[in-house]
Nucleic acid binder design. Structure first.
Length: 317
DNA sequence: GCCCAGGTGAAGC
DNA sequence: GCTTCACATGGG
């Protein structure tokens, strides 16, 4: 990888919370900056099934965050950032990427067992993002029994149909914001099904209606205890414990949330209960005690490792 | 063709 | 309580 200085463009450094010094370039009329980071695996973070809109493009990663087109590229000790329009305050993107979180104490808090050691060795630098609650909730409603690549396709279609076009630098594909709940609340189930979401369409529609009407206040969940926030989420049709925990972890940062999906089930059974027939309930109960206090992070490491590296090593004897 | 995918809800025991 | 099944769709 090349460093920021070697890329031929002046990239400003944004190390302080308040000070930003944009470097505008003539070539594409876009805005560039960079974030100094340590222990940040950008590819693992953006492609580990937390968020579904990041695409590899021109040597970096491209998506829409909020209403802004964003392109990121990993270089040693920094993330290069490009946007289409001027940005005065980068706090929204720093928050999303969690660049100011020190990963070392998190990894140190993992249980010291063979599974976690292998998972950390395989993808050290994997981070949890901090996403918009509505986009996260809607995305995971669409995730059930779908492969990640198919979730990406459905969400791409949903955004193209119902999102707002956002400004994009010349030479990049058209991009759209994630459609607001108020927008989706007013579309038909058939229109949603046209985006290939199948039986999930009525679930997404009902969630959009409850959020748009204020019956479910997503912003307020941030201040609730985990159990209260979870119970409000699972009151939505099509949202069970697993999807609720994804939202609690990826949008709100509740570290006690531990989404148990098919990959995490495989990882837990193979490593911690080899040869046993443990139920989902048992795995849930185990996960609630074994991985604290950084259970959410531990889950994401186990998930990404099991999905990308194959089987976990045998338990120590 | 067949099995499976970052599940959930309803029905059946 | 627990287990089984339907639900759309498409990748491998």
């Amino acid at each position: 990888m090349r460093s920021a200085r070697e890329l031929g463009t002046v990239w400003s450094r944004d190390n302080s919370a308040g000070h930003v010094d944009d470097a505008r370039t003539e070539d594409c009329h876009s805005v560039k900056t960079s974030f100094t980071v340590k222990n940040y695996d950008l590819e693992a973070t953006l492609a580990s099934g937390q968020a579904f809109r990041w695409r590899p493009e021109q040597g970096g990663w491209c998506s829409v965050v909020g209403a802004r087109w964003v392109w990121l590229r990993s270089v040693p000790a920094a993330i290069l950032v490009q946007t289409a329009e001027p940005v005065n305050d980068w706090s929204w993107l720093k928050e999303y990427l969690q660049v100011e979180v020190d990963l070392d104490p998190i990894l140190s808090a993992f249980p010291d067992d063979p599974a976690m050691r292998a998972a950390v060795a395989a993808c050290r630098g994997l981070r949890l993002l901090r996403q918009d609650p509505w986009e996260c909730l809607a995305s995971f409603i669409l995730s059930s029994t779908k492969q990640i690549i198919q979730i990406q396709q459905v969400i791409t279609s949903l955004c193209a149909c119902f999102g707002q076009p956002v400004a994009v630098p010349a030479g990049h594909l058209p991009s759209y914001s994630f459609p607001a709940a108020a927008r989706l609340a007013n579309v038909s189930e058939a229109a949603l099904r046209a985006c290939k979401m199948g039986f999930r369409a009525p679930y997404l529609l009902e969630a959009a209606r409850r959020v748009a009407s204020g019956q479910l206040n997503l912003a307020a969940l941030r201040h609730e205890p985990l159990e209260e926030a979870r119970s409000q989420l699972v009151s939505l049709p099509g949202v069970g414990r697993k999807i609720a925990d994804c939202v609690l972890l990826f949008a709100y940062g509740f570290q006690a949330a531990f989404p148990v999906d098919v990959w995490v089930i495989k990882a837990l059974r193979e490593l911690y209960f080899p040869g046993d027939r443990v139920s989902l309930k048992q795995l849930q109960a185990f996960s609630e005690t074994h991985f604290a206090p950084q259970a959410g992070y531990a889950q994401q490491y186990l998930f990404h490792y099991r999905r990308t590296q194959g089987r976990l090593p045998a338990r120590e004897s």
